[in-house]
Amino acid sequence: MIKIAVASGKGGTGKTLVATNIFYTLLRNKADALLIDCDAEAPNAVAFFNVSQGNETEVTRMVPVIDTNKCTFCGKCHDYCNYKAIFIIPPFKIIRVFEELCHGCGACSVACMDDAITEKPVSQGRVTSFNIDERQAIIESRINVGVMSPVPVIQAAIKLANQNHDIIILDSPPGTSCPFIQTVSTADYVILVTEPTPFGLSDLKQSVDTLKSIKKPYGVIINRAGLGNDSVQNYLKDNDIELLLEIPFSREIAEFYSTGGIVSEKIPALGDRLFQMITKIISLNGNSSN
């Protein structure tokens, strides 16, 4: 089993285009592949395939419920909560939990000496499994609107995939903050998708630094090559970073992609190149113990 994450420092560089096309070409070549959409704030991968919905699980977080009859208003839970989620005015016997601020760490439950705190699950989002031709093919993570952090939902999606597939493709959340790191840290290899513009380069550098710090092997795909300038190519050369593939800018690709189509279906050469690329990545990085 190998897990390959497809990521990009900023959104909109073509990360989902690459992830869905890699997945498509793997399926076409009869590989046992699974796609996990970890972009829980804006999951879109499912829309590109003809799927039927399978199991759906709710992802919850435990938040405290305070029994004001037992509470002695000692304030210890408030002191233990590092997220300012418990509000208390002892003289007025007022205590409240701000559920949106709570991270579900359980510190308040440990703090309470009077058995006044129980916990209840609160929904953060859901993880849905989708089938293609009656076998599990895509797992989607999706947070509820207004939820602070997508991390628990992403983790649940990755966990659900367990080890039952040969190749797992993770469509990562954009950026380099917590959700990105949580996703790529579970991968054996990371494909960074960028575009040859100053914004693209700046985000790429940040992603590369992050991946270096957690010691992940990675390579780069330049999407919309020909647009912008060659500063990304030069950066890759100067830093000995592998350029996996260049996808030329074409209006045709952009227009077809906008209809929700799989570009490799229309331009099979793209699928072939992605398949060669991924086969090489697997032969060099495959079968780890992650």
């Binding site: 997220y83 991270h103 510190a107 703090a111």
Partner: peptide, 13 residues
């Protein structure tokens, strides 16, 4: 370091 949420609970107990 990646998973730690910084809740302080371990340091307290």
């Amino acid at each position: 370091e990646i998973s730690c949420d910084g809740c302080f609970l371990c340091s307290r107990i």
